[in-house]
Design a binder for these strands. Structure first.
Lengths: 149, 149
DNA sequence: CCAAATAAATTGCATAATGCAAGTATTTTT
DNA sequence: AAAAATACTTGCATTATGCAATTTATTTGG
């Protein structure tokens, strides 16, 4: 995708800056799938219940890679299947995502958020954060390999 | 605006739910202006440095009002100038916004976020939150009046 | 009281983003 | 070698956004 006119509003505002990078309908859902469902392949992201289109998915993965929020690597066991994983910059979005979850779970009468997870999140956000991050790092190490291109 | 097809993805995911409501380029900036700059009038929002178009602003104010994130009231002193203010549901977005600020300030080399604010935010997020909210409630009480329509 | 100014939209039109279905290229499996 | 799998890409329709000008209602100044 060409650099859009609306990117980089350049106001200096940190909120506007963040929104310019992940403030669209899909980016955080891709990251959600990585964090909470352990997804790593193009095809896995396609299967999410929100049904992202493959061209949009390809575009978002490219943008997130360019922003170094995710990283695209070769799969040593399968040449046609790249592995996407979160960078530290991407993992840094987790506190924000947890707040999205809290707000959404509170205001959506039909929320499917697990009660136990919400309880834990309310009770000790920081502990839960550490738990999720350490899990993430553990599993991602299993798939270390060379960066694509 | 007519209800768009992409609204309400209905996956039950609290992240998707939240994104469907405030996951666009402008909604959180309007809320930012209310929280941090005390803006209350249509014309004030138009002046933000990101330059929102008046039709988009009107649309977003309407949606946020429908979602009960903001509330539109008569100005007792000026009939042509409605007053927009945050509801408790809107104020509940603040923790998320603070995380956007932290992430943006960290990753934008040209950030204009005040250092002192960021320092405070890192050191004691909850205290800062309480401080901002109590300030908000104080000033909004000055402008209490009847709901429009 | 009337004309000018102000405020909040609304409208028409151009551009950009998204969504969908189908197709292509490459790699792996049989 | 053929079939299946995987990751895209393409073409086209629909929807959202952006911009300038206009409209409606209210308020202000003479």
């Amino acid at each position: 995708m060409a650099k859009s006119k609306t990117d980089y509003r350049q106001s200096g505002c940190p909120i506007a800056f963040t929104l310019d990078i992940i403030g669209d309908r899909w980016s955080l859902l891709i990251i959600r799938d990585m964090v909470f469902l352990g997804k790593r392949y193009f095809g896995e992201f396609l299967e999410s219940s929100e049904k992202i289109a493959s061209n949009i998915l390809a575009d978002r993965l490219k943008r997130l890679d360019e922003q170094e929020i995710i990283s695209k690597k070769d799969n040593p066991h399968n040449k046609k299947q790249a592995i996407y994983s979160l960078t530290d910059k991407g993992i840094g979005l987790l506190p924000m995502i947890l707040e999205l979850i809290l707000w959404g779970a509170k205001h959506d009468p039909k929320t499917a958020a697990p009660k136990e997870f919400i309880r834990k999140l309310k009770k000790d956000r920081d502990a839960l954060l550490i738990e999720i991050v350490s899990n993430l790092k553990k599993t991602s190490d299993l798939y270390e390999s060379k960066k694509v291109k």
